[in-house]
Write a protein that binds this DNA or RNA. Structure first.
Lengths: 217, 217, 217, 217
DNA sequence: GATGAATGAGATTTCATTCAT
DNA sequence: TATGAATGAAATCTCATTCAT
């Protein structure tokens, strides 16, 4: 998807050769793994360097500190999220709209699968105020605004406040994906997409299309 | 709404008198304040005792550690959440169903206002595996099951998987309330309720009622 | 055996009635139990009051502190040890001497069974310098001197330094009893007495008597 | 004599370079000094790092905690004790047997001089049950067994239970050395060896040799 | 470029002792 | 006489960050 190629502050002051880039990559990947498992706060630099099979000293060769590393990841995740947002075309109340929505939700799921740990940290209370916190808030604003504009162009526009509805929509899909990922609620992915797409379509875009979802046993 | 009457492990081994119970209460309340402001991880025991105007030693007279205190709060929050869940009556597709849903959402908002810090921690990655993690998962299961049974009795029953839909619903309202609380997104509360109720009613319960929400300026 | 009837400093400033004496007794007994299990240093006042089924506050009604309580016990143990020492009559090289020695060793074992925890604490390195440390050293001196005088009057007197031999003898019986008590080395008590008496008799008092100890299987 | 080359748990998970090994050694040596002076319980990690001229953080780089460090020392002491035990040759009732015994006792004294603090802790009540406790018990068993086999091959074999006698012997020399070390009882070392060797020789190995010990003034 | 070693500030936790009822 | 409550000094332990090789 992307690469966080810039790295943290210290890395940007030097030119990285092949080996250096590889090491940085290993650290970033390791951080994802550790953030996933422990969250940002509980993640220790020690955990990260162990997973990356490198040393403390090396970590600070590439990142000013733990937060700096997080920013590198977050910049990536933010860009990917914005890119995805812009891909959401107009959603009509008909079957085509439903299809469009369902496809987009699938892509969102993939994005969350990849960037979940980072997205989650944005919303950790402790981050308010910090750079990451503002980053998350800004992103939230941008993303909901884009979605709101889609909703505003739909038949239900008179019934609901688009900005609120967009926020609710984002809340739902962000959190649902989190539940699925972290709790291993094992719904069949297709059922999930059918259901979420249906209810969002009906709730937000005046959808009258009805998916034939087989009831769960 | 709450009592957390049991307290943490050490407190349960002793008989508490009036003064002791008061102190324990002060600690629990202080913890809510601090968790709210800093989140569970960043909260230091020191912060809590400062807010409670007591000493370190006293803290450990009532709770084995920070997590133990959290459990006491969580038990409360869980009970309150379950109680609220059981209050959700049958939701029909008509105006009455809409009213019922909207009222219930208002109550959920109040509950979240109170227990937000605790609910949030349940979902922090670090807690998976731990007692709190399982507690959260169990609760999630129970709550969604109850909601699912309401959805199953609605006209859209054939279109969506009730369990998935219920999970999505819970994801939406939990997260939305979180956005509102933590980011100070300043939507008017009534608009929020109108919007969320409408889209949930339409998306989940086959609602055909249309609220006349004034568009935001 | 004895009673530590005086109690610690605070108790001596008041007149104790029946109830008070009973409470103090409970604390002393509890302390023995706890010192036995954990040693003096690791023993917490909390452990003692729990075993005594009383409270922290009560503890300090009778004893100035943990060490004060220990002194009360130690005074008792010291007196009992000295009393026992004075009971050791002259030991001849014949069967009568052997009998005398064996009997006395049996009594020492009983004393150790009772006062072991206290005796042990005397020898804990941490106590040097403190009152208990000096107390132990003084006692050691007195006891070995008494034993030495018995050895000096025996046929081996020319071969060994009585003071050193007495110290070695005390070392042996103190430590052996400790091994038995703490490690549950399950030698048959009679075999132990036979063996120890025999080797002390032969080693220290020129004993030529030979016990017919059945060899262990 | 010693190496404690393995170090504590944390140190075993890393590869130590020369500097690291040196630091670990400094900590181990410092611990011996502090345990000697204060005993295990009263010894604070702070004392140890001060003596080792390093920091708290460094301590935990090599040892999980104070007990972990103790284990490293104990493993050493145990190995040294076993090695010494195996050096004890057959002891006959003649002068040669006496010489052999006396020499061995001298070596035991040196070992105790070195490892006394560690050996002592093994016997502190608090350690029963823990790893150190079992370690001590196992060692006690092995050592007494070896000594017992020497006793079994001596003329007194019929008179005493070798296993009990060996335990008594060990008790004596362990405790005597402790008295000497901790109480600064100032017996002349040669007199001590003469006396102990004589009485053990006579008591355990049917010794008929008589040392000409000059009586103390 | 990489790494092991070291640090120390800060957090948690324990526990003997005092206090108020 | 008894007790639960409170305290705070001191100990343990953690971990992000810097340093020397």
């Amino acid at each position: 998807m992307s690469t966080a190629a810039r790295g943290g502050a210290p890395a940007q002051e030097r030119e990285l050769r092949a080996q250096g880039r590889k090491t940085m990559r290993r650290l970033l990947d390791a951080a994802m793994v550790v953030f996933e498992k422990r969250g940002f706060h509980a993640a220790r630099v020690d955990d990260i360097v162990k997973v990356a099979k490198t040393s403390h000293g090396t970590f600070y060769l590439y990142f000013a500190n733990k937060e700096d590393l997080f920013h590198a990841l977050a910049a990536d995740a933010g860009a990917a999220t914005l890119a995805l947002t812009s891909e959401l075309g107009p959603i009509g109340p008909d079957e085509a709209g439903y299809r469009e929505l369902r496809t987009w939700l699938g892509r969102f799921g993939e994005l969350y699968l990849h960037y979940g740990p980072v997205i989650r940290v944005w919303t950790e209370a402790e981050f308010e105020g910090g750079v990451a916190g503002r980053m998350g808030t800004d992103l939230l604003t941008e993303v909901t605004r884009a979605i709101a504009s889609r909703i505003a162009n739909s038949p239900t526009a008179t019934a609901v406040d688009p900005q609120i509805a967009a926020t609710a929509f984002l809340a739902m899909i962000e959190r649902f994906n989190y539940y699925v990922l972290s709790r291993q609620i094992d719904f069949a992915p297709d059922d999930v997409l059918d259901t979420i797409a249906t209810l969002a379509h009906q709730g937000l875009f005046g959808g009258n299309h009805t998916a034939r979802v087989p009831r769960r046993a």
